[in-house]
Write a protein that binds this DNA or RNA. Structure first.
Lengths: 225, 225
DNA sequence: GTCTATATCTCGATAGAC
DNA sequence: GTCTATCGAGATATAGAC
């Protein structure tokens, strides 16, 4: 949850805090731009304008456009991992996974820009954050997969592959943020529409929790390729 | 299924066919580049090199880089819509939807570049193909949603929202292509691994078909947000 | 810390010879 | 249809004054 550039310990001076706050504001402005047009599609001048600083001044705070881009991504990543990290092994499985799905849907609604920038980065092969994925993310996912596997073994949920279950949750919840342009074109609505948000959430919950119920999950799919 | 630039009627001359074949080859080369780096992240020179023509020559076949990009997308889109279009109202619902899921998974494996380029375009707000989404795609999806709704009303499958069901299928199947960098980082495997492909397909089938079975689908999810 | 001015470079696209 | 040469726009990043 620690945000790069805004985690100010008590020893930081007023100047340092001001400096860091300024950097953070620039990252905020850069996020929505990068999420819409990607690293190459955004100019330093556009970022400067959106952050209300001069272009020259922008390069006083960051030494390159790429550094801004990476800064945005790194900051995003810690927030990104938090919800899964919160998955509690002691909780009731259905409740815990349901809570996770609901939280992911809330995040897709509240911060679609972050979801889209993350998506852009991954689709392009994760050139900037591949290392973090192979270390932090992998460790976290493997740990939580073990929790889910235990739940399966204890008969609390149907036997499912934990990794594929997590991918399914990520895919469906993030889809509403990442593909909102397509959904808007087809359904004419987005998550900003409260009713649509509820329908979407209920559907994801039905699909995911349905796969976890101990009776339905037992039967295997017909004719798997 | 008609591919722009390669649909040569019998009346086209040898020269014309050669011309169109050349254009098609350029589009092929451009696809994998654009899918990895986006419109702005790829230079005309890179495309020329990949297509084994000179940069000057590239602009003999296409008047601008953007025209190439749109050409790739338009060609992709028709292939993209075909599987859903093939959903047969007369077929057994579980079989038909299962077949659709399996086909989408096959496509994610066989042509991940197309999936990723489509994803990039949509995430960025579909600036180039928004019109097609609001017309062709919307018409198609609405028509097939009606088919699925009819199946629900006839009691052949559980009552589900057809649009959200379609989004769920798209999300999960395309996720394996679009987020393969992340999946590779976490699971260490991709759809190229035959076993992993089968696990993934079975999991998606279990989740989707599970939500359609007439007994499990009846109960509503607990505590939807 | 913030500004004006500018060096430097890449890239899209074209001109014109062949 | 294909090449060499090049124009001009726009972008990153820096220099140096204040």
């Amino acid at each position: 949850m620690v945000r790069n550039g805004s985690a100010a310990g008590p020893e930081t001076s007023r100047q340092q805090r001001r400096f860091l706050a300024r950097k953070s504001a620039i990252l905020d402005a850069a996020l929505s731009l990068f999420s819409q047009s990607g690293l190459r599609g955004v100019s330093a001048e556009q970022i400067a304008e959106a952050a209300d600083v001069s272009k020259t001044n922008l390069f006083y705070y960051f030494s390159s456009k790429e550094e801004i881009y990476v800064g945005v991504l790194k900051r995003l990543l810690s927030d990104w991992l938090a919800p899964l990290d919160a998955l509690d092994p002691q909780a009731d499985p259905i409740q815990a996974i349901g809570d996770y799905v609901r939280l992911k849907m809330e995040m897709s609604r509240a911060d679609p820009h972050s979801s889209r920038l993350f998506c852009l980065e991954i689709v392009q092969g994760a050139p900037m954050i591949g290392d973090e994925l192979r270390t932090s993310l992998k460790t976290l996912v493997d740990r939580k997969a073990a929790v889910i596997r235990r739940w399966s073994e204890d008969g609390k949920i149907a036997p499912v592959d934990p990794h594929h279950l997590i991918y399914a949750i990520w895919a469906m919840t993030q889809h509403y943020a990442d593909f909102s342009a397509q959904i808007a074109a087809v359904s004419g609505r987005t998550l900003d529409d409260e009713l649509f948000f509820r329908e979407a959430t209920e559907n994801v919950l039905r699909v995911i929790l349905g796969a976890l119920s101990t009776d339905a999950g037992a039967k295997s799919p017909q004719g798997a390729a």
